[in-house]
Amino acid sequence: MRINFRVIYFMVFSVISIVSFAEKMPFPISVFKKANKGDIAAQVSMGWFFMKNGDEDDALKWWMRAAEVGNVEACLNLGDFYMVRKDMKAKYWYEKAVELGSAKASRGLAVYYQDMEHNTEESLRWMTDAANKDDTESQFILGNWYRHDEPLIAISWYEKAIEKGDVRAMHRLADTYYQIKDYEHAFYWYKEAAEKGDIECQSHVGYMYTYGKGVDINHKKAGYWIRRAAESGYSVAQFNLGLFYSRGSIGLEKDERKAFDWFKLAAQQGHSGAQYNVGVYYFKQNQSEEARKWFQLAAENGSEDAISILKRL
């Protein structure tokens, strides 16, 4: 099985972010008094106060106090703290949090075993444990893990994450159905995610309406979804809208100026095809230096057409 767990994890796993504030937060006197009297929630809060103000030693002191009496959040915070620093103490605190029932700690152990001990089997075991405890992140991660080699298993994990409303899982579930050529299910989930604001899925829905993939061809709806994604800044949709205007297709009137405007927006975001087309536009306008600039950018981004035309120029 092909696994690229490290990439998946760093995309989705939440860890402590240590920040230095230009101005220190005011000291929470009332919380401090409660913490000193043994209030566990206050002790955890004091840990966060000191951590956010850059005082790691005092933060750890308060979290340790809460963890020693069995506070799961404090144990998890300590696990995350040491994991960020690649310190093997992370394992101890994650295991403590797991004993207290934390699904996030099981996910933490999965990351620990992958990153620190390079033990993929144990990593998978703990990620599955977290997912079985209804940890949505773990369910999403497992979907990504299995997607290319065992898509049916991936589908089952994405579906569990979707039950919690995870739009990313809807997107990846649609991708997985598309991968196995089940276009009707792919269209359904792309549209579900599109309606919830996923701009890449909006573009996919437009594409599928354009070419009748999993749904009847409907150019009016295709234009609606592609324009919606383009106006939200998705470069692929901007490029496609430029193509449709340049060709006068999907019910749009041919308009070279509108085509150029959409190509330019996509080009500015690094879309190589759009950069090439912007270069062509300037070339036709006899603006050779401007054309060469865009052809060069397109070539640097891998456009074979741009590489070819630069050689001729």
Rank of each mutant, 00 (worst) to 15 (best):
D182V: 02
Y183M: 14
Y183R: 14
E184V: 15
E184P: 00
H185G: 02
H185E: 09
H185N: 13
F187W: 11
F187Y: 12
Y188W: 05
Y190K: 03
Y190T: 03
K191Q: 14
E192V: 08
A193Y: 08
A193S: 11
A193P: 06
A194M: 09
E195G: 04
K196W: 05
K196M: 08
G197M: 05
D198H: 14
E200R: 11
C201V: 01
Q202I: 00
S203K: 07
S203P: 00
S203L: 00
S203W: 05
G206Q: 07
G206E: 06
Y209P: 01
T210R: 15
T210D: 13
Y211H: 14
G212C: 13
G212I: 09
G212F: 08
K213I: 08
G214Y: 13
V215I: 15
D216W: 05
D216N: 15
N218M: 15
H219E: 15
H219Q: 12
K220L: 13
K220H: 14
K221R: 15
K221E: 15
G223C: 11
G223I: 10
Y224M: 09
Y224Q: 08
Y224N: 03
I226T: 15
I226A: 07
R227I: 06
R227F: 09
R227V: 02
R228P: 04
R228C: 11
A229M: 04
A230C: 01
E231W: 01
S232D: 07
S232N: 11
G233C: 06
G233Q: 04
G233N: 06
G233P: 06
Y234N: 09
Y234C: 04
S235W: 01
V236Y: 04
V236C: 00
Q238A: 04
F239E: 00
N240A: 05
N240T: 06
